Simulated scan of single mutants.
Amino acid sequence: MNRHSPTKGIITAAALVGLVLSGATSAQAREPELHGIDPPPPSVVAAGVAAAAYDASLGQSGAAAAPSHRVELVAKGSARSNRTTVAAKIHIPPGGGVDWHTHPGQVYVIVAGGGELTLLTTGCRRLSQPTGTAFQPPRSAHTARNYSDEPLTLVATFDIRGPKPTVMVDPGRDAQLDERCGLEE
């Protein structure tokens, strides 16, 4: 098998999701069967404007008074010089969400617990993802919202080129898309 095949990327993503769901620790992440994965840094939490630059690349929103979501970086590694694989847990409280954004690579998401995730596309199409579903978000700009009454946990793997798994759209376009789709911040 070609070492750069899509199948190998899917297997790597599945292994990282398994690591996340099993609750593996940093020490466990260094085991030989996970060769090439750097041990994860401490959990990264959004807390307003003091959020770190890497938080922003994962889609953190630092402008809100209360966090609209929180990201835990679980593991990050690179099998090839131009690609990075990141595993993260995204916690979205009731009424919270991730502003309009895109991903510069393949993304796999599992709705691991809580209510139901609602994705909105730039055409205002709503895609509902209940707990227990796995999906790939649209390649175009989209927003993720938790309209349920329960906290929501997503487990995601990002196989990307470049330093950022999530690229936020500029604030002007974000406001236009919110207005077009009838969303309030």
Rank of each mutant, 00 (worst) to 15 (best):
M1L: 14
N2A: 06
R3P: 12
S5V: 07
S5F: 09
S5L: 06
S5A: 12
P6Q: 00
T7D: 11
K8I: 13
K8V: 12
I10N: 01
I10D: 05
T12A: 13
T12M: 09
A13D: 01
A13F: 01
A13I: 06
A15P: 00
L16S: 03
V17L: 15
L19D: 04
V20T: 14
L21G: 05
S22Q: 12
S26P: 07
Q28E: 14
Q28W: 08
A29W: 09
R30A: 15
R30N: 09
R30T: 15
P32M: 04
L34K: 05
G36R: 08
I37S: 03
D38S: 14
P42H: 08
S43F: 13
S43N: 13
A46M: 05
A47D: 15
G48L: 14
A52W: 07
A53D: 15
Y54C: 00
D55I: 09
A56K: 15
S57V: 03
A63C: 08
A64V: 06
A65D: 08
A66P: 01
A66H: 13
S68R: 13
H69L: 15
V71T: 15
L73T: 12
L73P: 00
V74Y: 06
A75F: 07
A75E: 04
A75N: 08
K76G: 14
K76I: 14
G77C: 04
G77Q: 06
A79Q: 05
A79V: 09
R80A: 13
R80M: 11
N82I: 09
R83Q: 09
T84G: 07
K89L: 11
H91L: 12
H91K: 08
I92N: 14
I92G: 10
P94R: 03
G95P: 11
G95C: 08
G96V: 02
G97C: 01
G97M: 02
D99K: 11
H101F: 02
H101N: 09
H101T: 11
T102E: 06
T102C: 10
G105Y: 05
Q106G: 12
Q106F: 15
V111E: 11
G113S: 08
G113I: 00
G115A: 03
E116T: 15
E116I: 12
L117P: 03
L117D: 04
L117K: 07
T118L: 09
T118M: 09
L119Q: 11
L120N: 02
T121L: 10
T121P: 04
T122G: 01
G123I: 07
L127T: 08
T131A: 15
Q136P: 05
Q136G: 12
R139A: 14
S140P: 00
A141G: 00
T143A: 14
T143Q: 12
T143G: 02
A144D: 06
R145Q: 13
N146F: 07
Y147M: 10
L152P: 10
T153P: 04
T153G: 01
V155S: 05
T157D: 09
I160R: 12
I160P: 02
K164C: 06
T166Q: 06
T166K: 07
T166A: 14
V167W: 00
V169M: 05
D170V: 01
P171V: 04
R173Y: 00
R173D: 01
D174F: 02
D174K: 13
D174L: 08
A175M: 05
A175Q: 08
L177T: 03
D178Y: 00
D178N: 09
E179A: 15
R180P: 02
R180T: 11
R180Q: 13
E185M: 02
E185S: 14
E185K: 10
